[in-house]
Design a protein around this nucleic acid. Structure first.
Length: 310
RNA sequence: AGGUGAGUAGCUCAAUUGGUAGAGCGGCGGUCUCCAAAACCGCAGGUCGCAGGUUCGAUUCCUGUCUCACCUG
């Protein structure tokens, strides 16, 4: 029959504020592509300014996917993202268009490209485990439990509450250690797609400046009001969306605990720390990706992508 | 001008009844398979305001000096 036909996709990643949206929009426009967001927070409705979603004009220029799909009260995870992205890629290819994955959530992108081992999960069990162990005193109990039940994983993650809870979840379902069930990704990095992947790379000081400028822009365009509204809707208590950067800091400002300048500085600092983690991630977890020095020559980049068969 | 207090890591502050100093935050590096804009691990920074004195030895005591804050006039 047909050989396993591997679909071609383009992936543009990079740290926050590196210009992924602009670059991918341009690529999509030129190569009749459609954009799939790879951003854990853009999936949520209402986090518009804070998640730096593309604006109306950009959304009209090129079709976008995996944006505004869920309420902030919903729980999301990598597995769910991969399902959605796979589906979106399929549909775009059916239309004869090129999927352009654009985003900074490295874990989602790596999982999409290299796949996830079929580790089981059970939402009810997980909720129960979280309630029991995801706290300071719970962590102590968890360590005691895991050290006898699953010593291997305990050794591996003994200081990492969340990973230990996940290990316990898998252990409860399968009776096996999660470490045993996971193939190490680096031993067998086989791609699920035929991909052209680029990581946007900036000079550090440049990127810092961009983060500052963008933060100011976000604040000017009403981020505080957006945050007030989302907090009212329960953002801070939400299972996943509460992790979105900045909102917790803005909450402190709204409560009068810090002044506006302090808020601004703290947002910039935590955004920078996030960017650094992303840089580390993309540097070490994505052998498929080539660095794209920014600012880049768009013509040359498009040419390069065309040469790769798009 | 006089009085009081403070001057210790980039920042906020500990400690040493005299034996050359720690923490948090920040910075830097890293980990990462179902909360990842998360969570976790590691590392590097200090001539202890400056100048003298006492002492085997001072960041710690004494004197002077500078800076800052507050108080009095």
């Amino acid at each position: 029959m047909f050989k396993n036909f591997i679909m071609k996709i383009i992936v543009i990643t990079g740290p926050t504020a590196s210009g992924k949206s602009d670059i991918s929009l341009e690529i999509a426009r030129r190569l009749s592509g459609e954009i799939i967001s790879a951003d854990s927070m853009q999936l949520y409705k209402g986090l518009d300014i804070g998640a730096a979603k593309p604006d109306k004009r950009e959304l009209e220029t090129v079709p976008h996917h995996l944006i505004d799909l869920f309420e902030i009260s919903e729980r999301l995870d990598v597995f769910r993202y991969v399902e959605l992205a796979d589906k979106a890629i399929c549909e775009i290819r059916k239309r004869g268009h090129v999927p352009v994955i654009a985003g900074g959530t490295g874990m989602y992108i790596r999982a999409l490209l290299y796949g996830l081992d079929p580790l089981p999960s059970n939402p009810e069990l997980r909720t129960k485990l979280d309630a029991e162990f995801d706290s300071e005193p719970g962590f102590e109990k968890l360590k005691d439990l895991m050290s006898v039940k699953d010593p291997g994983d305990f050794q591996r993650w003994k200081q990492h509450r969340r990973k230990l809870i996940r290990a316990l979840e898998v252990f409860e379902i399968t009776g096996k250690s999660i470490t045993e069930l996971q193939k190490t990704w680096k031993d067998n990095p086989s791609l699920r797609y035929d991909v052209f992947a680029g990581t946007l790379v900036w000079d550090r000081d440049e990127l810092k400046k961009r983060i500052e400028t963008r933060t100011d822009k976000m604040l000017e365009s009403g981020w505080v009001d957006e945050a007030r509204e989302m907090i009212k809707q329960g953002l801070l208590q939400s299972p996943t969306a509460h992790q979105a950067l900045g909102y917790k800091i803005i909450a402190e400002y709204l409560e009068g605990l810090i002044d506006r300048e302090t808020m601004r500085c703290r947002i910039i600092t935590s955004t920078w720390q996030y960017a650094r983690r992303q840089i580390t991630w993309f540097k070490n977890q994505h052998p498929e990706s080539i660095p794209i020095k920014m600012p880049t020559d768009m013509e040359k980049l498009i040419e390069e992508i065309r040469m790769a068969g798009f």
